[in-house]
Nucleic acid binder design. Structure first.
Lengths: 145, 145
DNA sequence: ATAACCGGTATCCCGGTGGTAACCGCGGCG
DNA sequence: CGCCGCGGTTACCACCGGGATACCGGTTAT
């Protein structure tokens, strides 16, 4: 809980942006998962989210704060700092978020295969004008070539 | 299944764009729900999705097709037409999609309240420079006024 | 012949998201 | 004193999603 977040928490190739199931803006789900096990400071979050610039991280955090999913607390003690943590409302998102992760884990390969074959077919058949790509099941029109 | 889709299937104020849980692009979840009970033709989909221009609807359908979630079939019979239907992979999305809908239904009010009070506070306190907005819990710095 | 329907495309445009880089005030510390 | 880390902010900019409008080629209906 207090141990620092691992810098490689998110795979470089993490397909969150390609994932059909999304929560909030581009980085919101990753932020939520970073906060899953307790409050975190801004600079702590920057470790696993090293691809996120401070501006964008601030934007995302503000948006989450606005939606009541994250609470921002300023500690003005000797060493002042800021902590972000999930509100109960934010915690309630963990469940559907986990469900989304499960779906992705289970079907990611299928989705990638589908994309690959779709793109492959599109390269072979750069749809002339009336889209002859997807062959009809009954009485297909004459295929190209 | 073969009865036409209701034109008012989606509320004018349907907050899908504000929903923190999203699937695919802006219209994808609505399209998926339109296809939930059987194949649909392009012009059938345009009825409930009347706010979606044909270009954008085509884009969304192509994207879903590319991801293997929707199958596009051209029937070149006497009266040629096109049908879209969910693939098994697309059907598997219905479950997390429903979970997302449940979450939104349960927490929509909380989220709206949070936004309202956040925006209200922001108007009262147009953050001067160092953000004094969120009061610290211990040893808060002197609040404005 | 002509009009309508179907399933889209083509073109233009606009706004928002997200990225880069630089800078900032504050406090602590060597 | 100067510098660093913290937690950002500001300015600028490129890209892309999405919207508006118009058009299109084929087929059927009138």
């Amino acid at each position: 809980m207090r141990e620092p977040l691992p810098a490689d928490m998110f795979d470089e190739l993490c397909p969150s942006s390609l994932n059909p199931i999304r929560i909030g803006d581009k980085w919101a789900p990753l932020i939520i998962r970073c906060l899953e096990h307790g409050p975190r400071r801004f600079s702590e979050l920057r470790v696993p989210l090293k691809r996120v610039t401070p501006k964008v991280l601030t934007q995302s955090l503000r948006s989450l704060e606005r939606d009541g999913l994250v609470r921002r607390t300023v500690y003005a003690e000797a060493t002042p700092h800021v902590e972000y943590e999930l509100t109960p409302l934010g915690r309630s998102l963990l469940e559907p978020l986990a469900a989304a992760c499960v779906w992705t884990a289970e079907h990611w390969d299928e989705l990638l295969d589908a994309r690959e074959s779709y793109d492959h077919a599109a390269r072979l058949d750069p749809r002339p004008s009336p889209r002859t790509g997807a062959t009809a099941s009954r009485t297909p029109e004459s295929p190209a070539a």
